[in-house]
Amino acid sequence: MDRFLFLTLDGLSRGAVHAAFALALVLIWRAARIVNFAQGAMAVAAAYAAYTVSAETGSYWLGLLAALAAGLALGALVDVTVMRFVDHRSPLSPVIVALGLVLLIQAVLGMIHGNEFLPAETPFSRAALTVGGLAVLSPYDLFVFATVGVVVAALAWTFTRTAVGLRMRAAAFAPEVSRLLGVNVGGMLTLGWALASGVGALAAMLVIPTELGLHPHAMDLVFVSAFTAAVVGGLDSPPGAVVGGLLVGLLLSYVSGYAGSDLTPLAVLALLLAVLLVRPAGLFAPVTARQV
Results as ranks from 00 to 15, higher is better:
Ile105Trp: 05
Leu189Val: 15
Gln39Gly: 01
Ala55Trp: 07
His113Pro: 05
Tyr254Gln: 13
Ser261Phe: 02
Ala20Tyr: 00
His88Ile: 12
Leu246Asp: 04
Leu142Ser: 05
Val136Thr: 15
Phe85Gln: 12
Pro91Lys: 11
Val248Thr: 07
Val287Ala: 14
Asp262Glu: 13
Phe117Asp: 04
Arg126Lys: 13
Phe145Ile: 09
Leu134Phe: 08
Arg30Ser: 10
Tyr60Phe: 15
Ala170Ser: 13
Tyr254Ala: 11
Arg84Gln: 12
Pro286Trp: 04
Ser54Phe: 02
Thr264Met: 01
Leu155Asp: 00
Ala47Cys: 09
Ala204Asn: 00
Pro123Asn: 08
Ala153Phe: 13
Ser59Glu: 08
Ala69Asp: 00
Leu214Ala: 03
Ala66Thr: 03
Leu266Tyr: 08
Tyr60Leu: 14
Ala38Pro: 00
Gly245Thr: 05
Leu195Arg: 04
Pro91Thr: 12
Tyr258Phe: 14
Val231Gly: 00
Glu116Asp: 14
Gly233Asp: 02
Ala50Met: 11
Asp262Ser: 11
Gly282Leu: 08
Phe4Val: 15
Leu271Asp: 02
Val177Lys: 03
Ala218Gln: 03
Leu189Thr: 15
Thr228His: 01
Ala267Ser: 04
Glu211Lys: 12
Leu246Trp: 04
Val255Ala: 06
Thr190His: 06
Ser261Thr: 10
Leu247Cys: 12
Ala46Glu: 00
Val97Gln: 08
Gly240Asp: 03
Arg14Glu: 06
Leu104Ala: 15
Val199Cys: 11
Phe4Tyr: 09
Ala66Phe: 04
Ala146Trp: 07
Gly234Tyr: 03
Ala16Glu: 07
Tyr48Lys: 03
Met83Phe: 15
Asp79Tyr: 15
Met42Pro: 00
Leu250Val: 11
Leu7Asn: 08
Asp2Glu: 14
Val53His: 06
Gly282Lys: 11
Ala49Cys: 13
Leu181Glu: 13
Thr288Gln: 15
Val164Leu: 14
Gly114His: 11
Leu74Ala: 12
Val131Phe: 14
Phe159Leu: 15
Leu252Asp: 09
Gly40Ser: 12
Val131Ala: 13
Thr158Glu: 01
Gly192Met: 07
Leu206Asp: 00
Ala153Leu: 15
Leu283Trp: 03
Ser13Phe: 05
Ala196Trp: 07
Leu202Tyr: 02
Val95Gln: 07
Ser178Asp: 07
Ser253Gln: 09
Ala46Leu: 02
Glu121Asp: 13
Arg33Met: 03
Tyr48Pro: 03
Gly71Tyr: 01
Pro239Tyr: 03
Asp236Gln: 14
Thr160Trp: 06
Tyr140Ala: 08
Val17Lys: 00
Tyr140Asp: 07
Pro216Val: 05
Ala163Glu: 14
Ser261Gln: 10
Leu277Phe: 12
Val248Arg: 04
Glu56Leu: 15
Leu7Thr: 07
Phe145Gln: 05
His18Cys: 04
Ile28Ser: 09
